[in-house]
Design a binder for these strands. Structure first.
Lengths: 123, 123
DNA sequence: CGGGATCCAGCTTGATACTG
DNA sequence: CAGTATCAAGCTGGATCCCG
């Protein structure tokens, strides 16, 4: 499959890039990976994810929930308890993301060297 | 490989997320995919990539070049001619990106439905 | 032709304070 | 405990003009 048709390329990228942008934001992948071990409560996530603010954790979880990657379960107790868990869709996303992660691990040194070479030849 | 260690997860994500953010920007994937068919000149790319501004094409190409995904060749003719081409590293990136693209194609309907359901239950 | 320089609007992220 | 509200800073992307 040569996929050389510019129209196809555009159509394909317009659907893929938004997802890449979504999971490329500052915290989404981290949240997904932490949740891959099992359900977690809000403050549990906040503790496990070093450096995230309350606001950004809320935002990230809302976005993931909206896309159907994470489910939110409220226990009407006092104090309130809310569990977040990866949906099957969320779990399935880990497969291609891990493939990309593997690519990065295999090539990050080359990328680093390329950057240093590029930055070095600024006269 | 259970990868349940929070430290490992953090370490892994801190290396993967920056790349995701890079190729998740507005134009990078599109440029890479168009270049996968072979080398192109600057204005050729600008014509092929609908809607990109001169500034963003320059920026995107510079970033990709810095990371070693794209090579830049200048022909000292008049008028000047500059060819951009995917490096072997750039070509290899297409594999995991296509895997992610496939995941999106398979699940975009479910994502769309989830979003509509989520937005619908805003009271 | 292939850019660089400048300016600006909008979005993303974070700090902080408050609430049921 | 699990958020919401508000504000501010920084970054991204686009429009426009200029240049060898």
């Amino acid at each position: 499959m040569p996929d050389l048709d510019p129209v196809d390329i555009h159509a394909g990228c317009k659907t893929v890039t938004p997802l890449l942008a979504r999971i490329g934001d500052k915290w989404s992948i981290l949240v997904v990976m932490v949740l891959s071990a099992g359900p977690r409560r809000f403050n549990e996530l906040k503790r496990l994810i070093d450096g995230i603010s309350q606001r950004m954790l809320t935002h990230t979880l809302r976005s993931l929930e909206r896309d159907g990657l994470v489910s939110r379960t409220v226990f009407p107790t006092i104090p309130p308890r809310v569990d977040y868990e990866l949906t099957p869709l969320g779990h399935s996303l880990r497969v291609p993301v891990k493939a990309l992660g593997l690519w990065v691990m295999e090539n990050k040194d080359e990328i680093t060297r390329s950057r240093e070479a590029f930055d070095g030849r600024e006269d």
